[in-house]
Design a protein around this nucleic acid. Structure first.
Lengths: 349, 349
DNA sequence: TTGTATGCGTTATCAC
DNA sequence: GTGATAACGCATACAA
């Protein structure tokens, strides 16, 4: 490959002139500029990235750590991953993928060797080793998620406590006094209670404050979930519940919708459905479901912005936490009992 | 960050000694080695990647170009993408993601600036600009796919001509003389005829040689596909066909399976189904379908191996084409008419 | 407006 | 077995 010296020779100038033409850091005569640019084109010259970096020029590469687990939800995963990659590129950064086994080691290596300028941690669990060891990384780090230990990095996540409150309030305001909570599968509860558990507790607390009864149903392991049993249990138990708050994956929820349909139970006329902490967009659903979704685009944007700010402003972001307020996505699967009861026909929200 | 000089000072040796301790390129006394290693640990020293690269040490980074199109099939996509990332890491390489708009420019920049050691092109179309311009990249390049112009890069793909022949032969050998070809959607035909069209032509050619009749059905655009119409048309047209060769996405094929089920048409007793060029593993199917799949793992492995060989052996691979032979995946959806007709009960394959 | 010289952190050559 | 130092390609302070 042609180097800056070759360009200089071809253009009949010194190397510094070539460098300055490229960086615009001092004025160069039009004639010289032209000759240099011609030589650059002629030789297909591209500055060597390593040499530039050694002179303190930024890499513009961020590491994206995304462990490949067996049980990931691809749709949700991609929503985060693709969007983060997009945001990074949009901010002028390339993305170095870190998917290895030795996650922490890889990140340490990539940051300490100055390979990357910053790190984004994806698919965060409650006890996330990557986040816990963030202070050992040599570059600013942002976690998309809210792990327990996060001293060394910034965190960006949906405020799941608010999601819980909002879910309870939303149903209460529409006249619901008895609901069923279809929990995420137990595996998730064990692993990433970070948000799964926060949400549950928040729902329960708020419901108690409001005097709303909540029945929990938790046998939602994807492989063994039995929608028939769920619907049966739900309606046999006094049949009090007027709404389902679902925290389960789209496929599980859809099984429930199908079973309801089979049994002639209408949504939302006979039972309302509200999905929380999910990302139903793009999933196939028997019918649209009102949801308080996680926000991949927003979180990805915030994470990358925060990181880039830190990189370019040389500001530390360790310990920063940005919890974004949930936004309900109405899709007509929740009935307003108050309105419906007060005369007119069913009022969808 | 601590540099090699700091380590040298801390260990009371010269920088070259430190370097040699790390590289094992000359014998160092045990005592010196110990002192140096201690200092390295003490200072958390990691060599600077750029400085190393300037001295000719390889980066161990490969670029992975994967354009994010709106209509990608995520499951299939991920199978390729994740596997390629895995293979790369396994070969000791990090992966730099290139998802931008200006694909060719990005690859040129990344290769010419020595940012990466090689390039893998994913999701190749028939007329793929990235592949066509591969000779302008400064590093070896492998395309996973088989584009028309590929002078500058190596190509790795399934041999779709063989897939077509094999599909025809497979059904013919089992007594089928009249089949329906459920084509991939027209959009794919326009865009990536690279393999979609190759396959179709091969099926048609081979069928003609064998004297097997093939009826084409092509209204398979995901959004508008009408399984009811398809099944109706299929069985109203004289009802000759005993098998379906499907080139359609999993979701489309599954609609067909469901419709067949609804109409009481059994698979494979009443009609056989063979899916080609798909990747049904992991997709939800009403019933298992015998398939001649694309081979993400194998192709990813071949692509990365080829690339790494080229990088580490400094061998050129431009123009190399590796077309792998298809392997049929039997899942009992094709009936052996010959065996079934010759006495015994249905023989599944 | 342009050229010369230095140094970034490392590896490898040469000297001891 | 170990140390001093040139060179990698570039950006910039300093000269002119």
């Amino acid at each position: 490959m042609a180097g800056i010296k070759d360009v200089a020779r071809a253009a009949g100038v010194s190397v510094s002139t070539v460098s300055y033409v490229l960086s615009n850091k001092r004025s160069i005569s039009a004639e010289t500029t032209r000759r240099v640019m011609d030589a650059i084109r002629e030789l297909d010259y591209t500055p060597d990235a390593s040499a530039q970096k050694m002179r303190g020029v930024r890499n513009s590469i961020i590491a994206l750590s995304m462990p490949i687990r067996g049980d990931i939800n691809l749709a949700k995963y991609n929503a985060y991953f693709l969007r983060t990659a997009w945001e990074a590129k949009n901010a002028g950064y390339d993305v170095l993928l870190l998917t290895g086994e030795d996650v922490v080691g890889d990140i340490q290596r990539a940051t300490r060797s100055n390979l990357v300028d910053g790190v984004v941690l994806m698919d965060i669990e409650e006890s996330d080793e990557r986040a816990a060891k963030a202070s050992t990384y040599a570059k600013p780090t942002v976690a998309v998620g809210y792990p327990l230990s996060h001293d060394g990095c910034a965190c960006v996540d949906v405020d799941f406590v608010q999601v819980g409150r909002q879910a309870a309030d939303y149903l209460y305001d529409r006249g619901h006094r008895s609901v069923i909570l279809l929990r995420d599968n137990e595996h998730e509860y064990e692993r990433r209670s970070g948000y799964v558990v926060l949400f549950r507790e928040s729902v329960m607390d708020r419901a108690e404050e409001l005097g709303m009864s909540v029945l929990e149903f938790s046998k939602t392991d994807l492989a063994h979930f039995d929608a028939v049993e769920f619907v049966h249990e739900m309606f046999s138990d006094g049949g009090m519940a007027t709404a389902i708050i679902s925290q389960a994956p789209a496929s599980v929820l859809d099984h429930v919708l199908k079973e309801l349909q089979v049994r002639g139970i209408r949504v939302p006329e006979d039972v309302s459905v509200l999905s929380c902490g999910t990302f139903l967009e793009g999933e196939f659903m028997t019918r649209p479901v009102t949801e308080i979704p996680v926000m991949p685009e927003l979180l990805a944007h915030k994470a990358v912005s925060l990181l880039v700010d830190s990189i370019e402003g040389d500001r530390g972001i360790a310990g920063v936490v940005d919890l974004v307020s949930p936004v309900i996505q109405e899709r007509g699967s929740v009935l307003d009992l108050a309105a419906a009861g007060s005369g007119g026909r069913v009022a969808m929200t």
